[in-house]
Protein backbone atom coordinates (compact mmCIF):
# COMPACT_ATOMS: atom_id res chain seq x y z
CA UNK A 1 0.00 0.00 0.00
CA UNK A 2 1.13 3.53 -0.54
CA UNK A 3 2.66 5.49 2.29
CA UNK A 4 0.14 8.28 1.80
CA UNK A 5 -2.76 5.92 2.12
CA UNK A 6 -1.35 4.34 5.24
CA UNK A 7 -0.68 7.72 6.73
CA UNK A 8 -4.22 8.89 6.05
CA UNK A 9 -5.69 5.77 7.53
CA UNK A 10 -3.53 6.02 10.61
CA UNK A 11 -4.45 9.65 11.03
CA UNK A 12 -8.11 8.81 10.77
CA UNK A 13 -7.68 6.28 13.56
CA UNK A 14 -5.97 8.63 15.96
CA UNK A 15 -7.17 12.11 15.26
CA UNK A 16 -10.11 11.98 17.63
CA UNK A 17 -7.91 13.18 20.45
CA UNK A 18 -8.74 16.59 19.08
CA UNK A 19 -11.53 17.58 16.80
CA UNK A 20 -10.58 18.30 13.20
CA UNK A 21 -11.39 21.94 13.89
CA UNK A 22 -9.80 21.97 17.32
CA UNK A 23 -13.29 22.09 18.77
CA UNK A 24 -13.69 21.38 22.45
CA UNK A 25 -14.51 17.71 22.73
CA UNK A 26 -15.22 17.69 26.44
CA UNK A 27 -17.36 20.40 27.97
CA UNK A 28 -16.04 22.14 31.04
CA UNK A 29 -18.11 21.42 34.14
CA UNK A 30 -21.40 23.29 33.99
CA UNK A 31 -21.50 26.45 36.04
CA UNK A 32 -22.98 25.64 39.42
CA UNK A 33 -25.96 27.85 39.98
CA UNK A 34 -26.75 29.14 43.45
CA UNK A 35 -29.43 27.21 45.31
CA UNK A 36 -32.80 28.86 45.51
CA UNK A 37 -33.38 28.82 49.29
CA UNK A 38 -36.51 29.58 51.24
CA UNK A 39 -37.10 33.30 51.50
CA UNK A 40 -39.35 35.49 53.60
CA UNK A 41 -40.58 39.05 53.44
CA UNK A 42 -41.79 41.02 56.44
CA UNK A 43 -43.64 44.31 56.24
CA UNK A 44 -44.28 46.29 59.44
CA UNK A 45 -46.93 48.94 59.76
CA UNK A 46 -45.52 52.36 59.07
CA UNK A 47 -45.33 54.27 62.36
CA UNK A 48 -46.35 57.51 60.76
CA UNK A 49 -49.69 56.05 59.81
CA UNK A 50 -52.06 56.89 62.63
CA UNK A 51 -54.09 53.74 62.44
CA UNK A 52 -56.64 53.51 65.23
CA UNK A 53 -56.80 50.32 67.15
CA UNK A 54 -60.09 49.45 65.63
CA UNK A 55 -61.99 50.54 62.65
CA UNK A 56 -65.27 51.23 64.60
CA UNK A 57 -66.85 52.57 67.82
CA UNK A 58 -67.49 56.09 69.00
CA UNK A 59 -64.51 58.27 69.57
CA UNK A 60 -64.84 60.78 72.39
CA UNK A 61 -65.60 63.65 72.59
CA UNK A 62 -69.02 64.03 71.03
CA UNK A 63 -69.87 67.40 69.68
CA UNK A 64 -73.43 68.39 68.88
CA UNK A 65 -73.75 69.16 65.24
CA UNK A 66 -76.36 71.92 65.50
CA UNK A 67 -78.92 72.77 68.18
CA UNK A 68 -81.44 73.11 65.35
CA UNK A 69 -80.97 69.43 64.58
CA UNK A 70 -82.64 68.52 67.87
CA UNK A 71 -86.11 66.98 67.59
CA UNK A 72 -88.76 66.95 70.30
CA UNK A 73 -91.56 64.67 71.38
CA UNK A 74 -95.10 65.96 71.18
CA UNK A 75 -95.53 65.26 74.92
CA UNK A 76 -93.93 67.53 77.52
CA UNK A 77 -92.46 66.97 80.93
CA UNK A 78 -94.94 68.68 83.30
CA UNK A 79 -94.00 69.99 86.79
CA UNK A 80 -95.75 68.46 89.73
CA UNK A 81 -97.77 71.62 90.23
CA UNK A 82 -98.74 71.43 86.63
CA UNK A 83 -97.57 74.96 85.96
CA UNK A 84 -94.51 74.28 83.92
CA UNK A 85 -94.16 72.14 80.79
CA UNK A 86 -90.65 71.29 79.55
CA UNK A 87 -90.11 70.12 75.94
CA UNK A 88 -88.96 66.49 75.79
CA UNK A 89 -85.99 65.97 73.44
CA UNK A 90 -86.59 63.11 71.01
CA UNK A 91 -83.17 63.05 69.33
CA UNK A 92 -79.85 64.88 69.23
CA UNK A 93 -77.18 64.65 66.56
CA UNK A 94 -73.43 64.62 67.35
CA UNK A 95 -70.17 64.05 65.58
CA UNK A 96 -67.41 62.06 67.30
CA UNK A 97 -63.71 62.68 67.24
CA UNK A 98 -63.50 60.85 63.91
CA UNK A 99 -66.22 63.14 62.48
CA UNK A 100 -68.60 60.19 62.40
CA UNK A 101 -72.24 61.03 63.00
CA UNK A 102 -73.68 59.84 66.30
CA UNK A 103 -77.44 60.03 66.98
CA UNK A 104 -78.90 59.93 70.49
CA UNK A 105 -82.58 59.02 70.66
CA UNK A 106 -84.70 59.54 73.81
CA UNK A 107 -87.93 58.03 74.98
CA UNK A 108 -91.12 60.02 75.13
CA UNK A 109 -92.26 61.24 78.58
CA UNK A 110 -95.02 59.20 80.14
Amino acid sequence: MSDKRLQEDLVSLTEYAVDAQGRQLKLPPAKVKAALPAVAAIAAKNNDQQIPATGGGIASPLTETDIADRTYHAAYYTSTDGLIQIPAIASMKFTDANSAEVMLEFDSPP
Partner: peptide, 17 residues
Protein backbone atom coordinates in the same frame (compact mmCIF):
# COMPACT_ATOMS: atom_id res chain seq x y z
CA UNK B 1 -61.06 44.38 68.37
CA UNK B 2 -57.48 43.94 67.24
CA UNK B 3 -55.04 45.87 65.17
CA UNK B 4 -55.28 45.02 61.46
CA UNK B 5 -52.84 45.23 58.57
CA UNK B 6 -53.05 47.81 55.80
CA UNK B 7 -53.02 47.37 52.04
CA UNK B 8 -49.62 49.00 51.97
CA UNK B 9 -48.18 46.45 54.38
CA UNK B 10 -49.63 43.57 52.41
CA UNK B 11 -48.25 44.91 49.18
CA UNK B 12 -44.82 45.54 50.62
CA UNK B 13 -44.74 42.01 52.04
CA UNK B 14 -45.93 40.41 48.81
CA UNK B 15 -43.50 42.38 46.66
CA UNK B 16 -40.65 41.83 49.05
CA UNK B 17 -40.45 38.11 48.47
Amino acid sequence: PTTLPTRDMARRAAEGL
